[in-house]
């Protein structure tokens, strides 16, 4: 189980709402938000994803001074690992490249507001395998994340299902 703190601020809510194409002023205009049922600025439904910015171990964020698996001079910044039998010329960065998000579930207990200091705990859920038509053998794994406020009350419960595919998912 991992734990970190997610301080929620208004600018991050505004930027997040913009990025999903949400023009609702409740996400940035305090005067307007006072006139709404929640009575103040709140976060949009999928906002807790932004907690990854505060997750010290989040793998999909470049680390200062460390090589990054995206492109720079080369198509990936990670040096290829040693070849093993049957691997052909497996390029590094490939394991991450096969990782996709399959499903996401949220249960909402309370609105998230600017100024909230959420405690985020994650634990692993189930893992299972499936033969896929488009992506070869697929390995699914579940992660359950709880967001609690300073009184310890649950604010959001999020369950994420990730899938590692055997090959790039075909487009037909």
């Amino acid at each position: 189980m991992a734990e970190f703190t997610f301080p929620v601020d208004g600018s991050q809510i505004m930027l997040f709402a913009r990025s999903v194409g949400d023009a609702n002023p409740i996400y940035y205009d305090e005067e307007y938000a006072k006139t709404t049922e929640p009575g103040g600025v709140i976060a949009p439904p999928t906002f807790v994803q932004a907690s990854s910015q505060y997750d010290p171990k989040f793998p999909l964020r470049p680390r200062i001074g460390e090589p990054w698996f995206g492109s720079g001079k080369e198509a990936t910044g990670i040096k290829p690992k040693e070849k093993s039998a049957g691997d052909g010329e497996k390029k590094s960065g490939g394991d991450n490249a096969r990782m996709l998000h399959a499903e996401q579930q949220y249960v909402y207990h309370k609105p998230i507001r600017p100024g909230d200091k959420l405690t985020v705990t994650t634990k692993k859920g189930n893992t299972w395998e499936k033969e896929g038509r488009r992506g070869g053998t697929m390995t699914f794994s579940e992660v359950v994340t709880e967001y609690r406020d300073e009184s310890g009350d649950l604010v959001v419960t999020a369950t994420s299902v990730g899938v590692t595919t055997g090959k790039a998912v075909s487009q037909d």
């Binding site: 997040f16 990025s19 999903v20 194409g21 949400d22 609702n24 409740i26 709404t36 049922e37 929640p38 709140i42 949009p44 439904p45 999928t46 994803q49 996709l100 998000h101 399959a102 499903e103 996401q104 579930q105 949220y106 249960v107 909402y108 609105p111």
Partner: peptide, 26 residues
């Protein structure tokens, strides 16, 4: 995927109102 789920959430909150969702999965 989460961009599509976020964009879909715009439709949901525009319809059901602010702070009215109790569950949402995709």
């Amino acid at each position: 995927g989460m961009l599509s789920m976020g964009a879909t959430g715009v439709m949901l909150t525009n319809w059901v109102g602010d702070g009215r969702l109790t569950k949402y999965s995709a």
